[in-house]
Simulated assay, not measured.
Amino acid sequence: MYEIFVLGELTVGDRHGYILQEILKSALGPFRQISAGTLYPLLSRLVEDGFIELRPESGSSGSRPRKLYAITESGRIRFRQLMEAPLEFQADTEILFQFKTVYFRYVSKEARLACMEQYLTYAQYKLKHVTDREFQLHMQRPEPEKQRAQLLRVLDYRKQIGAAEIEWVKQEIERMKAAAD
């Protein structure tokens, strides 16, 4: 998941590792952070795999030269492969989808629409899970009643969020279809 972010950011332009970390922290939000212990091994692996290169920054002053990461041509190919890969239904699907949407301008309209359609299926699957659970609670009527009632309220909240998400994705799909490529 972070690989697509790093390659996407380097497609935009060369970056220092700490800048990548700050952008990623901002993208993930206040409650999910990435540590240097996660990011820098990923950067090292991407360098070893030839997807990015590390080079000293020209004109840097001080005792230690600053290093820049830059994407290579094989990194651009890998990035397009990741962008065009189908979304899998897993814990990080929503974050991966958000990362992909940020970099949509680097892939074809067909790839963008495929991603949106896949995410629509994912969002519909999540909503079905919630409505199935709600149905079970109505049928089984577990005790205590107050707890069941509150759980139904939580499920209603999740249904409202899910329905709004599905509506947004459908609108984006229609917008993309209508837009010139």
Rank of each mutant, 00 (worst) to 15 (best):
T131R: 08
E53A: 08
F79L: 12
E84N: 06
S74Q: 08
E88D: 04
P65W: 01
K100L: 02
F79N: 08
P65K: 14
V130E: 03
F51H: 13
E110Q: 15
A85T: 14
I95W: 09
P65R: 13
T121E: 14
A70P: 00
M116N: 04
L82R: 08
R112F: 01
I52N: 02
L127W: 04
Q124N: 12
F89A: 06
T121I: 14
R105P: 07
R66G: 00
G62E: 04
R80I: 09
E57A: 11
P86W: 02
L82S: 05
Q90E: 12
F104T: 10
Q124Y: 01
R133E: 15
L87Q: 03
E134K: 12
G75E: 13
Y103V: 11
Q118C: 00
T93G: 03
T121N: 11
R64T: 13
G75Q: 10
E53V: 14
S74R: 11
L82C: 06
M116R: 14
L120S: 07
K67G: 00
L120C: 07
S74T: 15
V107Y: 04
S108G: 15
A91Q: 12
K67Q: 13
T131L: 05
P65Q: 10
S61T: 14
R76F: 04
E94W: 08
T101M: 10
H129W: 01
E84G: 00
V130K: 02
D132I: 01
F97E: 09
A91L: 10
I52D: 03
R76E: 13
A70T: 05
L127A: 06
R105D: 09
V102N: 02
K128W: 01
G75S: 11
A85S: 15
R133D: 09
F104M: 06
F97W: 14
K128A: 07
T93N: 03
R80C: 02
Q90R: 14
K100F: 03
R76H: 14
R64Y: 07
E110I: 10
E73P: 01
F79W: 09
I95F: 15
A91F: 08
R133L: 15
I77P: 00
A91N: 04
I77R: 14
Y103H: 15
Y69G: 02
D132A: 08
A123E: 05
E53P: 00
L54V: 09
L82H: 07
Q90M: 01
L120Y: 07
E84I: 01
Y122N: 03
R55F: 04
M83F: 12
R66D: 03
S60M: 03
I71T: 06
P56W: 00
L113H: 07
Q90T: 02
G75L: 11
R55Q: 05
F99H: 05
T93D: 10
E57V: 12
E88P: 00
F89L: 07
R55P: 00
I52E: 02
F79G: 03
K126E: 11
F97Q: 11
A91S: 10
T72G: 04
T72N: 04
D92N: 08
M116H: 14
T93Q: 13
R66S: 08
D92K: 05
P65E: 08
R78M: 11
